[in-house]
Amino acid sequence: MKSTTRGTLAAVVTCVAAAVATPAVAADSVPVAVPLDGVEHALNMEMPTVGGTVPLIMPGRPDGPRYVEGRLLPDRAIPQLPVTSDLPSLNLRTPVPHVLGDAFDHVAAGTPTSDLRALTPGATLDAPLTAPRADKLGLPALQLPEAGVLAPVLQAAPGADLGLGPGL
């Protein structure tokens, strides 16, 4: 087999592998269930059902350093990285015997997914020298060095549901 044929075949296999792997990566969250069926059969009683989702964190594109007139170093030397995700969800449903009547009743609690947006901490620095000055024949002047921390940001609106009702 010629090297060009092998190269073409390798490119096709790589494209097919990327196309097959894309749907797995495109998921927003991974469902998680706590298996309690074995305990339910061993103890011969109804057990609670527990499940939820674990979100996948998606980093964004950082807002890079910006040039500021009069400074030697750019503003936001260490940029903040935006991160978007969902808060994990949790669903819990447990039987409670004879609370509202003769049949098994249940208590359910859940936290639905909600959007989460965050910015990582960043830093801004300035050198102990100013930009070259015309009045000093192009030489920089001394100044106090500056260092600052850009605070992290977290924005979310979590919620919860609590219910009590008949049946399981």
Rank of each mutant, 00 (worst) to 15 (best):
M1L: 13
K2C: 09
T5V: 15
R6C: 12
T8H: 03
T8M: 12
L9P: 11
T14L: 14
T14R: 02
V16R: 06
V16L: 13
V20A: 06
V20S: 08
A21G: 06
T22W: 12
D28K: 14
V30W: 10
V30A: 10
P35I: 04
P35C: 07
L36S: 03
D37H: 07
G38F: 05
G38Y: 03
V39D: 07
L43N: 09
E46N: 15
P48H: 06
T49G: 06
T49M: 03
V50D: 01
G51A: 11
G52L: 01
T53A: 07
P59C: 05
P59R: 05
G60N: 04
P65T: 12
R66Y: 03
V68A: 13
L72C: 10
L73K: 05
L73S: 01
P74C: 10
P82W: 11
S85H: 02
P88Q: 01
P88N: 00
P88L: 00
L90K: 02
T94N: 05
P95A: 14
P97A: 07
L100P: 01
D102G: 14
V107D: 00
A108T: 10
T113Q: 15
L116P: 04
R117V: 07
T120Q: 06
T120E: 09
A123C: 10
T124V: 12
P128A: 02
A131V: 14
R133D: 15
A134C: 13
D135R: 08
P140F: 14
A141Q: 12
Q143V: 14
P145E: 04
E146L: 09
A156Q: 14
A157F: 09
A160H: 09
D161C: 02
L162K: 00
G165A: 09
G167W: 09
G167C: 06
